[in-house]
Design a protein around this nucleic acid. Structure first.
Length: 565
RNA sequence: GCGCCCGUAGCUCAAUUGGAUAGAGUGUCUGGCUACGGACCAGAAGGUUAGGGGUUCAAAUCCUCUCGGGCGCGCCA
């Protein structure tokens, strides 16, 4: 839809409204706006607004009366491209547009191609999105896979809206879990050397620890079979470095690239964590109690205060993380987006409190909770525990169902819905995964382009002479164009709500309209005609536009648009 | 006990953030290419949107209570 026209009509409605009630002693609400929807029912026009119902009371008129008056007024102002504007139902204002308005959509798509939906609503805003951030204590699981897919898609969507986007992985590479990891490896390794080292009570039991031990032994023999603090440190480094390499490889193969891996260990050595504590101290937001240092997070809405420094002198988990968030803001990012698992949702108020306490707006931090992907094998729920070594790795899922299908599966659902991922089903019926429905559309259109070449001896060139598109007179064609025209706002909405699944919903609708059009009565609707006439050229322009939108939409999700399948 | 999320067709999920007749896929049933890709299409059946109450022109959506499910509530990470 030509945005300009939409705004012109909205402007006309507003000025009519003002004129109508201006003379009377009515209160015009401070913020009034005209919001258009695209109605589901085509009898309700091309655009519709609830404006009259929303502001009827302030105009002291009935919604029906107001809608009628506004329609009369706007109709008389002679807007080019506006065919009809009429009141309907309880007070809707329905807008019908001239056909040429729709043809222009096709021209615009063919002209801008994959940039059709690019907007600048977010121009100049620096956004950092932190996601996956799995501890380097084991391979990535399916839960991480969902986060990786969602985070990457969000980054793409925000970039499409004009934001400057930075992807970061917060690497929890120090602390207790790493220590346990190192000792787990140490124990397994010592066994290979024919010696003993106690396996930690809550050690990591996955077979990958055995693999690492074997690898170490084959590389270094019994070189580290002594028992010392230094050796423990070596084991920690060896294990986490190797595991991090696996993680990076998995992510790369999953088409997820990070701008940086932010090492908590290195960060903790910069003194910035102490600085953050001092900053809060200076503001009088920390206090000492029972030998520990507490953050007065209740002041900013948390339900209890939090310990930052234990009586042992160690930091708690949140302390470096608070400093890390300050660091992100200090690096000049306007918006911090964190993707967390549901087990961390209780953590939101304290981090928001910390952001505010350090002098930033709470709105700077947006936390998206990604509900778990629960794995099923048939009807059996698989318990997932990295430490117990019971998990299905992202790698396995990728290998079984393919990257595109796996990513799409993760992105189809609203992130705050649980995802039931039945492995058997996903493996066995991968060809029925909805992603193929979308990709098939693209492949089919590519095939039509090939057919065109075969028939007329040259490629279809999407340069459209004025007037040719007037051949697109069928209702089905208009519906397709209308759907194409809302792609930019669908992308916009998905970005602003941080909900990539909306792209899936949109693409499914578009693909469905296309397939339906394709299968219509073949004499009337055949795209490639006998001759290279205007109808053929017009329809080729239309399906080319569909192809571009499908590829762009899949691109926003980080999924390929194959030419053949 | 308190907090957050969820509850929509047999199953898995949507629903343009409060809009007009709640939609797809899957499963079941019936049809459709000598033509541009049948990984597709057309049609049927399937609903008291967990339940009660409230707010208004309008509620799956907002408020409230009840029931049911998930997850949190540490000087763990």
């Amino acid at each position: 839809m030509k945005i300009e026209l939409k705004e012109i009509i909205a402007g006309a409605i507003l000025s009519c409204y003002r004129n109508l009630i201006g003379n009377e002693e009515c209160r015009i609400p401070e913020h009034i706006s005209v919001d258009f929807d695209v109605p589901k029912n085509r009898d309700h026009g091309d655009l519709t607004t609830n404006f009259a119902m929303k502001y009827a009371s302030s105009a002291k008129k009935s919604p029906i009366e107001l809608s009628r008056m506004i329609c009369d007024c706007v109709a008389s102002s002679g807007i080019e491209g506006l065919k009809k504007i009429e009141p309907a139902g309880p007070g809707f204002i329905n807008v019908f547009l001239e056909h040429e308005v729709f043809y222009n959509v096709v021209l615009e798509v063919l002209d801008k191609r994959e940039k059709y939906a690019v907007s600048d609503t977010c121009r100049g805003k620096k956004v950092i999105i932190e996601f996956v951030s799995a501890n380097p204590t084991g391979p990535l699981t399916v839960a991480h896979g969902r986060q990786a897919a969602v985070g990457d898609a969000l980054a793409r969507l925000l970039a499409n809206s004009g934001c400057e986007v930075f992807r970061e992985y917060y690497l929890n590479d120090r602390g207790r879990q790493i220590d346990i990891l190192g000792k787990s490896l140490y124990s397994k390794y010592m066994k290979l050397c024919g010696r003993e080292y106690p396996f930690p009570d809550d050690g990591y039991k996955g077979s990958y620890i055995d693999d690492l031990a074997k690898k170490l032994y084959s590389e270094k023999g019994a070189e580290f079979s002594g028992i010392s603090e230094k050796t423990v440190e070596f084991m920690c480094d060896y294990a986490k470095n190797n595991i991090l390499e696996w993680i990076k490889k998995d992510l790369a193969d999953f088409s997820v690239e990070f701008n940086s891996y932010f090492s908590e260990k290195k960060f903790s050595e910069t003194g910035k964590v102490e600085e953050a504590i001092k900053l809060l101290e200076k503001k009088g937001l920390v206090y000492e109690k029972d030998g520990a240092i507490w953050f007065n997070s209740r002041k900013y809405g948390d339900d209890k205060d939090r310990v930052m420094v234990k009586s042992s002198g160690e930091w708690t988990y949140i302390t470096p993380d608070i400093a890390y968030h300050k660091d992100k803001l200090d690096r000049g990012f306007d918006l911090l987006i964190d993707l967390w698992g549901p087990d961390h949702h209780g953590y939101i108020p304290r981090m928001k409190a910390a952001v505010q306490a350090m002098g930033f707006n709470a709105g700077c931090l947006k936390v998206v909770i990604i509900q778990l992907a629960t794995l099923y094998q048939g009807k059996n729920k698989l318990s997932m525990s990295t430490r117990q070594g019971e998990f299905i790795s992202l790698r396995e899922v990728m290998n079984e169902v393919g990257v595109d299908a796996a990513r799409y599966f993760f992105l189809m659902l609203n992130t705050d819905s649980h995802l039931d991922f039945d492995l058997e089903l996903a493996k066995k019926r991968s060809a029925e995964n909805p992603v193929y429905y979308i990709q098939y559309t693209h492949a089919r259109i590519c095939s039509m382009l090939e057919k065109y070449n075969e028939k007329f001896g040259h490629d279809y060139i999407p340069v459209v002479q004025p007037g040719i598109l007037e051949e697109l007179t069928n209702r089905e064609e208009k519906d397709l164009i209308k759907k194409i025209s809302v792609f930019p706002s669908a992308a916009e909405l998905a970005a602003s709500l941080l909900e990539p699944h909306r792209i899936h919903v949109y693409l499914t609708e578009l693909a469905s309209l296309f397939h339906s059009y394709y299968h219509k009565d073949s004499k009337k609707f055949r795209v490639i005609g006998e001759k290279e006439d205007n109808i053929t050229l017009a329809r080729m322009a239309l399906v080319s536009a569909v192809k571009i939108i499908i590829a762009s939409g899949l691109g926003l999700l980080g999924i390929t648009a194959p030419e053949k399948m």
